[in-house]
Design a protein around this nucleic acid. Sequence first.
DNA 1: GCTAACCTAGAACGGCCGTTCTCGATAGGG
DNA 2: CCCTATCGAGAACGGCCGTTCTAGGTTAGC
Lengths: 186, 186
Amino acid sequence: MDREEARERLLGAAETLYYSRGIHAVGMDEVRDRAGVSLARLYRLFPSKAHLVAAYLRARDERWRARLSAFVEDGTPERAGSSARLLAVFDWLAEWFAEPDYRGCAFINAWGEIGGADDLVASAVREHKELFRAYLVGLAADRPDPVATAEQIQTLAEGAMVTSAILGGPAAARARSAAETVLAAA
Amino acid sequence: MDREEARERLLGAAETLYYSRGIHAVGMDEVRDRAGVSLARLYRLFPSKAHLVAAYLRARDERWRARLSAFVEDGTPERAGSSARLLAVFDWLAEWFAEPDYRGCAFINAWGEIGGADDLVASAVREHKELFRAYLVGLAADRPDPVATAEQIQTLAEGAMVTSAILGGPAAARARSAAETVLAAA
DNA sequence: GCTAACCTAGAACGGCCGTTCTCGATAGGG
DNA sequence: CCCTATCGAGAACGGCCGTTCTAGGTTAGC
C-alpha cells in the first residue's frame, strides 16, 4: 500500500466514522482499524487529530460540491435560466436528505462540536460555507442582484438541512417552494 | 442553600459552560466548581450527565421561547396582523445574533454533538424545534395555510441561525427580507 | 549479505472524564 | 443530648483518548 492509498483509506474511514457518529465520539484507534493502516503511519500522514478532521472536511467539501454541481448542470439545460438552476439545488437536497445515512450537514455538525476551539477545523467549515455561497452566486449570475439572491437561497438551504436532520419531513420541498416565491419576486 | 437553589445554580452553570464551549468539552467537575455545589449533590439532583444536559436544554428552551414571544408581543400591536408578528421574529433574531456571546443555536449545536446517540438529549432538541414551529403556526393563525407559512418561516430562521454563527454578517436582516417576500406572496 | 530505512502491531503514557466512595462536619427531630 | 440524615471536599476508580514509543519484520541499495 503506497502513501496515496493509505491517505485515501484514512480519509474514507474518517468520513464514514466522523459523519455518522460525530468527531468527539470516534477515537484514532477506530479510524486506524477501519482504514487498516498503522497508527504510526496515520500520524506520519496527519500530525494530529485536528489535521485529520480538517482534511476529512476539505475532502468532503470537494465531493459534496462536485455532486451538487453535477446534478444541477446535468439536470438543467444551459439556457434554462438561473431560476431553474437555483431550484435544482433543492431537488438535489431532497435526494441527499433521502439517503438512509443522512445525518445533517457535516460542517454544521462539526461547527456545533468544535465551535471556534480549533482553528484548522473552524476555517475548513467556514470555507465550505463560503464556497457554497460562491457557487450559488455563480448560479444567480444573470439576476439583478446575484449576491442577495444567493444569500437568500443559501439561508433556505441551510435551514432545510437543519430541519430535515432534526424534524424530518419534506424539508427540501418546502424550502424549494419558498425559493420559488423568492425567485419570482425579483 | 436549599434544593431549589442548588438546582438553579447547577442549571445556570451548565448553560454558561455548555453553550459557550460545547457539551463534550465541559466536564462535571467544572460544572460543580462554577455552581459551587458538591459533586454528590449534583448527582443526587441529576443522575447522569445526560440528565443534566437535557435539563439544561429544556430550561433554555423555555427561556428562549419566552424571550422571543415577549419581544414579538410587546413590540407588535395585537391588530398588526400575522405578517408583522412573523417578521418581528427576525428582528428578535437580529438582536440575539448581536449579543457578544452568541454561538449559534444551542439545540442545533447539541444535535451536531450528540446526534441520536442519547435519547434524552435528542428528544429535548426535537421538542424545542417542534415548540418553535408550533409558536410560528400560532403567529400565522389568520393566514390561509398557517402550517405551510410557519414551516417556511422556520426554515429561514434556522438558516439564519446557522449562517450567522458560521459566516457572520447581517443574516437576520437577509432572512427577514426573504420572509417579507414569502409573506407577501400569499 | 548487510545496512538502513520504513513498515506493522501493539504496548505504554499522561491526562481527562463520568461516576462512586470515603470521611468528617453539620444540623434538625425525638 | 443523641441519632440520623444530609451535606461538602475531595480522593478513588475504571475507562477512554490522543500521542509516542518499542520491538520486530520487510524491502531496497550497495
